[in-house]
Amino acid sequence: MSESFDKKSMIDEANLAYKKSEVMTENVLSYCPGCGHGTAHRLIAEVIEEGDLQDKTIGVCPVGCSVLMYNSLDIDMQQAAHGRAPAVATAVKRLMPEKFVFTYQGDGDLAAIGTAETLHACNRGENFLIVFINNAIYGMTGGQMAPTTLPGMRSSTSPHGRDTILMGNPLKMTELVAKLPGTYFVTRQSVHTPAAVRKTKKALRKAVEYQQQSKGTCFIEIVSNCPSGWKMTALQSNEWMEENMFPFYPLGDIKVPEE
């Protein structure tokens, strides 16, 4: 975690087509190769940098794969107990209303153990951004069934596939929070192609703007992959995500402000 690359020795400046955000630290990301988390981190960092928000941002990271998010982003962060990030962020924003506050939560954190905190923060219209990474699995603990695991999908605790009669149905949290009066902007995006990355970044920029206008809760789901948990290569996992995840979790805006 603490080792760092010497960028200059690896990258020839002349060939540098893309520059890493200054809001990203030099620490090596703790994610598996091909995982979408890194891209999502990078987008958040870029949006913070572009908005000149580095000194105004307080992030709240959860329990799960992204627990070490604070190693990657060069901003003030609080690490919350499992599922409790929206409660933590509620107090942070209410006590520091001039700051840009966001939570970054996985599906187990947001849609299982933290369901109550998530729904109530959204229902109160807490003025912060929730970034929800949905890869339909518990990654860090080794690939167990998540609240968003698809019907029939295999995991270490649904080794024969998710049987919805025995194990219940996947929970579409994003559709659920869109129904609540406190949410202002609710969208579902992905980060697996350059076009998708651009759309997600646009959504993040909007969320920053809406928070500055005190509009209420913004909720951005990012449907993502988990090559390790899904036991696929990075490429296979992206193909599998397109074929299986997107039909169940369709991409696009779910709740947009009336212009």
């Binding site: 919350a80 409790r84 409660a87 107090a91």
Partner: peptide, 9 residues
């Protein structure tokens, strides 16, 4: 957990 967040600030 709200207390945690506020205390953290």
């Amino acid at each position: 957990n709200m207390v945690y967040g506020g205390a953290g600030c």
